[in-house]
Design a protein around this nucleic acid. Structure first.
Lengths: 237, 237
DNA sequence: CAGTGGTCTAGACCACTGA
DNA sequence: CAGTGGTCTAGACCACTGA
């Protein structure tokens, strides 16, 4: 009998393997235990073990070859797609906990360059939030965002520990178009502090600007520790 | 009885729902059929339907709430504009000079993990090139590439100072599908040397794997100095 | 309370691989 | 051939939700 609070068996198997992989129990390319062996060790059914391994494969942690076996892949990356996707949903879909720390949430006066990008007049008010998103308690993204009060007048009234800016904005101001840049940059002292990494550590930086049919809505600078985040995607005809 | 070629039942259910979602059968937030209803309609077991829905949730296409139901998610899903561009053409289009330095171009024996990724047998030969691309004399990209001899048997005969691997491969082995990851990483000593940057400097790393209809063609790891390269894109409805 | 999704089980058949 | 992963089934128990 399993006590109610206990993690699901498939999650336990997955966690165990993840842990061992992180510790280097198997070098990349090395054969890992077969499903049958894990069934024996954990006293669970093969479907349960299979789900754990399938999810590890989907996360890029293991490789599986039918008729051959399961092998350790290069160590841990998390995945995303090049879409405007709510980070909360993304983390939840991995079965992980998300929580957000709000560091800044206020009205500011838009300096000229920013005002121009948001199609506001210089000196007009603009909303500014700085929020750090955590996955299972580990900082994953520092979201530095400016929002046009014209498109989302009630933005600052949102409880960002419960609703992400992306989620809220997608609801109140549907996106018509967006552009983005993706680059690698060294963490600033401030970013390093917020993300619990070292200054100068490589970060994946996405700058995204969205607009509706008439005007810009928001500009966000999303900084991710390079070691904890990767963008994944695919295309087919 | 299911004919051997048929897609797996879970994939059929998933495909059906994806199709309907794409057609706007359910608006965002609208309730979709329950697992029980889909079991009845497709004559499959609930585990099968559950897997289809779970994967749709993981892809961000639906939201599921225990005790309540399954709902169509906000769209948010836009085709990636990340294209496979020939770097030579990209540099030329900026009116700049491109030249390539070939550091490695040889046949090697594929270690197991690589062989699996390229659908080769372990120990089979594989082509390996390491080429540094310069824009106006400045190193812009270090291209570390493995190529399946099955798809491009004459690969090593190409003069890579005159033709880029991407250009050549697009000609001899048209791409049917591709996937990629984008991440930030610190330059290794070797990469730093090739790119004329400091070890540890942030780099934008794209790993791209392409395949034709039958089999993988090539895996490339493209390392760019963070200070010199960014990916840009836009999407609109 | 009925309906929902989350998960597990113990078996099954299959395709594939390498010895 | 034995071993592997891919998938399915038909049931089960559970937590959760909203009427």
């Amino acid at each position: 009998m399993v006590s109610p609070q206990a993690a699901a068996p498939y999650a336990q198997v997955k966690h165990f393997l993840k842990e061992q992989l992180a510790r280097g129990r198997w070098s990349p390319g090395e054969r890992m235990p077969s499903e049958a062996q894990l069934v024996g060790r954990f006293r669970v059914s093969r479907m349960t073990v299979n789900r754990a391994l399938r999810e590890l494969r989907d996360e890029g942690l293991v490789e599986r070859v039918q008729g051959v076996g399961t092998f350790a892949a290069q160590p841990g990356r998390v995945a995303s797609t090049l879409t405007i996707r709510d980070l909360h949903a993304e983390i939840a879909s991995r079965g992980h906990r998300h929580h957000a720390e709000v560091h800044v949430a206020r009205r500011e006066v838009a300096p000229p360059a920013l005002a121009a990008k948001l199609a506001l007049e210089a000196g007009a008010p603009v909303f500014h939030t700085v929020i750090v998103h955590h996955e299972n308690g580990v900082p994953l993204q520092c979201e530095d965002r400016y929002v046009s009060p014209v498109c989302a007048p009630d933005y600052l009234g949102v409880d960002f520990t419960r609703t992400t800016p992306t989620h809220y904005l997608l609801e109140v101001a549907p996106i018509w178009q967006a552009n983005y840049t993706i680059e690698a940059a060294a963490a600033s002292a401030e970013e390093a502090r917020l993300l619990a990494i070292e200054r100068g550590d490589p970060c994946l930086v996405v700058v995204r600007r969205t607009a509706n049919r008439e005007r810009p809505i928001t500009i966000a600078r999303l900084v991710h520790p390079g070691s904890r985040y990767a963008i994944e995607g695919a295309f087919a005809p």
